[in-house]
Design a protein around this nucleic acid. Structure first.
Lengths: 193, 193
DNA sequence: GAGCTGATCCTAGCACCGCTAGACTTCCGA
DNA sequence: TCGGAAGTCTAGCGGTGCTAGGATCAGCTC
């Protein structure tokens, strides 16, 4: 009886060990070098054990991505709620860009590697939470007769584009905050100072 | 003497055959299934022949990406120059989004797979041409004391984010043109009608 | 406490990948 | 005609994700 629970605990613990090992390896050497063999070595089990926890390599990447979405949502929400009046958008956008810059491998898992994550109405909780944070900030900026959700998507895309192009070295380095300022100015229609 | 030239021609022809085969396969079945072996089968040569043309698989992907940049730059420039007054930004942005939607595999090669392409000041011609088109449209929109190049980067990122998030199914389908309208309205500061 | 049963784990191997060494064939120029 | 260079192929190396099948070990039953 209690045995069953202990096993369950150990299983869960090992699963999260796999995920964090994958994450660390990816962040240190890139996703290409995260192989099942190395992962198995790292956690000191044979390869088949990994398949007892995840359907395959892709599922492990997805798990890292999901963890990333949780953290991103949390970061954004914290930034938003602790910002002073009028500074919510900037704080949240900055949190997004910081996340992308600080955890590039996780970000990559979330937005270019993940394949099994559901979006839209049936999305998992962390994904919805992240969008909700964005919505809370963008919706008030919607103009007359403008759908706030569509505006949110647009604003998200703008921030996201900034994050990805910058990460891939396609924008001039050292100017990210200037670009963010321009974006903010355009979206809230202010002076940009 | 003439033999040398004929050989040169045949070589070039075969190189472009490889690139277009890779491109077609990627567009049809995804980049994962573009393997050197299948590619060799397709062009009816053995694998080592491919390595006489390209340093490796990555170089082939890069070649497809470069071709993509040429086409994208051309599309944007055509859209921009043939648009009626005041419609340049919309036409160009639309061209960008259309390209991403119509040729997803090429777009993927350009922005997530390519590894050997230089950006910035030493970028290849097509990349510079593409940015020049963007610059021509965005620069006039720069506000007082605002760096036009930084504005261009920001605008590009916004459009790019729209393209990628939409491609990955992370935005509600069927609303891309509404999102573009919102973006345009925000960037030119107009009414958005 | 002995024996059974089911969960757990590993060894070994499949089919595929990118890439390359070395042999063979073909063609050109002297 | 013949020698050398260019071109091409076969075969194979080390790696990948993934899995079948057997061994081992824990816990339950009597």
């Amino acid at each position: 009886m209690a045995t069953q629970q202990r096993r369950e605990r150990e299983r869960a613990r090992r699963a999260s060990l796999i995920v964090s090992a994958a994450r660390e390896m990816a962040e240190a050497e890139g996703w290409d070098s995260v192989t099942i063999r190395k992962l198995a070595d790292r956690i000191e089990y044979s390869q088949p054990v990994l398949y007892g926890h995840f359907a395959g390599r892709g599922a492990i990447v997805d798990a890292v991505a999901l963890e990333g979405f949780e953290e991103l949502a949390e970061s954004m929400e914290r930034a938003r709620t602790s910002a002073e009046d009028g500074g919510e958008l900037e704080a949240m956008a900055q949190a997004y860009l910081d996340f992308a810059a600080a955890k590039p491998a996780v970000f990559e898992a979330m937005f270019t590697l993940a394949e099994g994550l559901q979006f839209g109405d049936e999305a998992l909780e962390p994904l919805k939470a992240g969008f909700a944070s964005l919505y809370a900030v963008f919706a008030p900026l919607a103009g007359e007769g403008q759908d706030p959700e569509t505006l949110t998507e647009t604003g998200w895309a703008a921030i996201h584009g900034l994050a990805t192009l910058n990460r891939d070295g396609r924008l001039r380095p050292g100017l990210q905050s200037q670009r963010l300022q321009i974006l903010l100015q355009r979206f809230r229609g202010g002076s940009g100072a």
